[in-house]
Design a protein around this nucleic acid. Sequence first.
DNA 1: ATTTATATAGAACGATCATTATATATTTAT
DNA 2: ATAAATATATAATGATCGTTCTATATAAAT
Lengths: 178, 178
Amino acid sequence: MSKKKQDLLEHAEKLFYQNGFHAIGLKRIVHDAGVALMTLYNHFDSKEDLILEVLKNREKRYFSHLNSMAECRNTEGTVSVALLFAEAHIAWLSSSGTNGCMFLRAKEEYALENEEIVNQVIAHKKSFISFLVKQGFSHAHSIQLAMLFEGATSLSEILDVNDIAIQFRSLIKDSFRE
Amino acid sequence: MSKKKQDLLEHAEKLFYQNGFHAIGLKRIVHDAGVALMTLYNHFDSKEDLILEVLKNREKRYFSHLNSMAECRNTEGTVSVALLFAEAHIAWLSSSGTNGCMFLRAKEEYALENEEIVNQVIAHKKSFISFLVKQGFSHAHSIQLAMLFEGATSLSEILDVNDIAIQFRSLIKDSFRE
DNA sequence: ATTTATATAGAACGATCATTATATATTTAT
DNA sequence: ATAAATATATAATGATCGTTCTATATAAAT
């Protein structure tokens, strides 16, 4: 991929996450990326196309992050594995910032405006649940884990991530004990 | 309160929730409320002031909703009480729509733009946790409950609320059993 | 070296944004 | 009935929005 395109994706992701999608203009994105406005339109059809690609990029990175954790999985047992992914998610939250889930925010902002964005976010969340099922969790347990993950993400906007991590682990131990 | 003002608050809340705060213009709000633009500025200092009042209004309604549930609390015991509030929250989600938590969305959109909005949302979430503590839950359990509530709200954007309710109750039973 | 592709700055487009001004009307209170 | 308060429609403000056009410059490929 072109370096300019990569710069655009990176700065767009950061700005969208910190300010929201409607709140940030393309002028600001190209300025921060150090790129001309026409270069953006050379790589992306529209702002909403840029948003779609930003989300695809972020999804790929998030799953890579989880998978890299799953690899060093020397332990079996539902609790341990769930705790493993919980730590991975907490680590993601710590480095990602405290502005909620970017996917859900995109869906919320474009709920009535862009069906493609909405569908892509729904697909992402469903494939996250599928990912958990593939890891050996039951469907019910996967939904429960997903709920806990979303809850941790939201609450990290209000409370310290370390305090959340403690209760996060505690909830998992109680719900997944064998 | 003036009826015009109430109409404005109601339509603003609905439009903000469905479209986002930056995405919706004041023209659209006054049009839907059947009111002149200057009437809005007669009742509110600015768009962001309107947002603050919408959130205050919603917070009042949400806590009223929870309290009306707490009143018909003929049962004691941590699990039963937690389940009671869980049902109240599920009922709120069912009637509120599936676009996430309006408070967090406001905080996210104005994170770098309006400190007052951010602080009001943080205060709201903290007073929700305080509410739980007042209901007799430990601090740790209150944070856990808050996390579950937020998770249910987020996940209701993706899955059917009834399916969520099942796992929601299951998580509470596991974590709050005496 | 010449062609082809990509990036540049800057202006223009039409639209919409929040906000203010103006001047007329309607409602409410005394 | 008279005065005060509130609501109305409309337009203007200056700014910003996403997108397109133009014309020049840089870079890559043949």
